[in-house]
């Protein structure tokens, strides 16, 4: 509406610059992998403990809250044996046991949130080994324990959606941080892809903090949603990673260079075996990617029957002529063929 009067003088500089970056509140959702087996491995190999990581995450949450008084946080855990994926904060039922972790001088908001988080996680951690024991008792090698990281991500996205809808001013931006320590074999491919698409639609960036083995799926997730994928080489300095590389607010993303790992494996994976494949089969009805031909000749996703003739054709092994043959046999074979060009 200021086009009514064109000014010969330019505007004072503060305003256009501030328009560049809106000071809107933001919501940070964190998903942490707490599987005891994985942590055991990690601690043995790299001497990183869950306690360190949880502490760093808590400090990071505090920093996020200190950015803006109306910032929100949410914390989820994944891959737990007892509950799969679970919400840690904000809990719907009020917990009475807010213990005072720290000296009373702490900012009230931090204190409350931190206390609640530590309580809940500790409670969960206590349950894990027992459940694990139960699982060990069952049959070996026949069961496949699902990883629930994708589930936790979906829950986080739903939570973000809920908060964004209920915010009257429509000014809340969000992002998701995933702290993962397991590899792709625990991730269900299709579910992870679906969460990636959902975050794309909602314009939520997915940042990934990776310890332990690296993961193709999460790399693709970060790349597709304008997020940061960082592989932690020095776990001792985790807090620096968390407060620098993984701390970029959604409103700063347009102007800041993202320190993400740019060498990404963009290959797709088979829906059944979760292997990354270069060449494979695709169902023409539902476009599901397969690396093997199913025994029952039906697509595992849409259950459409494949053409049997085609399958026999595909299954046929190629048979070609051998190379090293004696000359006179060569001559016999080529009796009827076109003359060979040297």
């Amino acid at each position: 509406m200021d086009a009514i009067a064109d000014r010969a003088f330019t505007e004072s500089q503060t305003n256009p610059a501030h328009k560049l970056v809106d000071e809107t509140p933001s919501l940070l959702a964190v998903v942490v992998d707490i599987n005891p087996l994985e942590w055991r491995k990690l601690e043995k190999e790299q001497s990183v403990s869950l306690k360190q990581v949880v502490s760093s995450i808590i400090v990071m949450l505090n920093s996020h809250l200190s950015l803006n008084s109306s910032n929100h946080v949410a914390l989820y855990i994944a891959n737990s044996y007892s509950h799969g994926a679970q919400l840690i904060y904000p809990r719907t039922e009020s917990s009475k046991s807010t213990r005072f972790l720290h000296t009373p001088g702490m900012y009230r908001q931090f204190r409350f949130i931190d206390g609640s988080i530590v309580d809940t996680i500790e409670h969960l951690l206590n349950e894990q080994p027992d459940t694990l024991l139960q699982l060990i008792g069952r049959e070996q090698g026949k069961q496949h324990i699902k990883g629930t990281l994708a589930g936790a991500m979906s829950m986080a996205l739903c939570h973000i959606n809920k908060i964004q809808q209920s915010d009257e001013l429509n000014a809340l931006k969000s992002r998701l941080l995933v702290v993962s320590i397991s590899d792709d074999s625990t991730l269900p491919y299709v579910s992870v892809m679906n969460t990636i698409f959902a975050s794309q639609k909602m314009k939520i960036s997915v940042d990934v903090c990776k310890l332990g083995p690296s993961s193709t799926f999460l790399q693709q997730a970060a790349d597709a949603t304008n997020g940061v994928y960082i592989y932690i080489t020095q776990p001792e300095g985790l807090i620096q990673y968390l407060t620098t590389a993984l701390f970029i607010d959604p409103m700063l993303r347009p102007i800041i260079v993202l320190p993400t790992d740019e060498s990404i494996d963009f290959r797709a994976s088979c829906f059944i075996t979760n292997k990354v494949i270069d060449v494979g089969y695709v169902c023409s009805v539902c476009l599901c990617i397969l690396s093997v031909i199913p025994e029952d000749e039906k697509c595992p996703t849409c259950h459409s029957k494949f053409d049997h003739n085609l399958i026999t054709k595909l299954k046929r092994k190629p048979k070609v002529l051998p190379l090293k043959k004696k000359d006179k046999e060569l001559g016999d074979k080529n009796g009827t063929a076109t003359p060979e060009s040297a």
Binding site: L101, E122, L125
Partner: peptide, 25 residues
Amino acid sequence: QLNPTPTVYDEYMKTYKLQLREVDL
């Protein structure tokens, strides 16, 4: 990787349980 084997449950689990008892940020 999440499939447990019997050997897994060991001393580590005890420390795992008690990790967050005292937290110093």
